[in-house]
Simulated scan of single mutants.
Amino acid sequence: MANELQGKKIAFLVAPEGAEQIELTEPWKAVKEAGGTPELLSTRPGEIQAFNHLDKGDKFPVDRVVSEASASDYDGLVLPGGVANPDFLRMDEEAVRFVREFFEQAKPVGVICHGPWTLVEADVLKGRTITSWPSLKTDIRNAGGNWVDEEVVVDQGLVSSRKPDDLPAFCAKIVEEFAEGRHEEQARSA
């Protein structure tokens, strides 16, 4: 990865606690190594508490509160997993609005593990093929999505992966999709 993302700003949206640390730090590193500028958004200012499965990991400073952000400020979005993280996000109207805007604006989105719960709440999965942690299969299908068990899936600018073991493939694909930019066929009516 060289400078594919030079001049591109990528939003990473996480709850104040519960994000799986490696699902935040590895994609973040991939975006930086590709010349992009990652920005950490959350529902509250200050710091977020990341987790290594169920154990507390490191804390990371929040760059911007999601209620003050718009998808038009960014070139792409990453939604890390962690069991609690997307559950908290899907209960926050501003976080859900922000996620939905990326689909309305046909901008690429990367989501991993439990992250698709936020996409279910944003009602953006109808007709899309996506993968995730297996326990989300029924939720995704109930939201109109087609769940598959694959390392990485790309559907009209939406990149999804199942788990931390899939991070190398996930990181390569998000960089590729972010470099491509807008995906007109991704635009969905809200």
Rank of each mutant, 00 (worst) to 15 (best):
W28L: 02
W28R: 03
W28V: 08
K29N: 08
V31W: 01
V31G: 02
K32M: 12
E33K: 13
A34L: 03
A34S: 11
A34Q: 07
G35S: 06
G35F: 09
G36M: 04
P38H: 02
E39F: 05
E39T: 12
L40N: 14
L40H: 14
G46H: 06
I48C: 02
Q49G: 02
A50D: 03
N52K: 15
N52H: 13
H53P: 06
D55C: 04
D55Q: 06
D58Y: 08
D58K: 14
V62Q: 03
V62W: 01
V62F: 03
D63L: 11
V65I: 14
V65H: 08
S67K: 10
A69P: 04
S70R: 07
S72V: 09
S72N: 13
S72G: 14
D73G: 10
D73P: 05
D75G: 04
V78T: 10
P80D: 09
G81W: 09
V83R: 14
P86T: 09
D87R: 10
D87A: 07
F88H: 10
L89D: 02
L89R: 03
R90L: 11
A95T: 11
F98S: 00
F98V: 12
V99Y: 05
R100K: 11
E101S: 05
E101C: 08
E101W: 09
F102E: 00
F103T: 07
F103L: 06
F103E: 10
E104G: 13
K107L: 06
K107D: 01
P108T: 09
V109W: 11
G110D: 08
G110V: 01
V111L: 07
V111G: 06
V111N: 09
I112L: 14
C113E: 06
G115Q: 07
V120D: 09
A122D: 04
A122G: 07
L125P: 03
K126I: 01
K126W: 01
R128E: 14
R128G: 09
T129E: 12
T129V: 10
I130N: 00
I130P: 00
T131W: 14
S132D: 10
W133A: 08
P134I: 09
P134G: 13
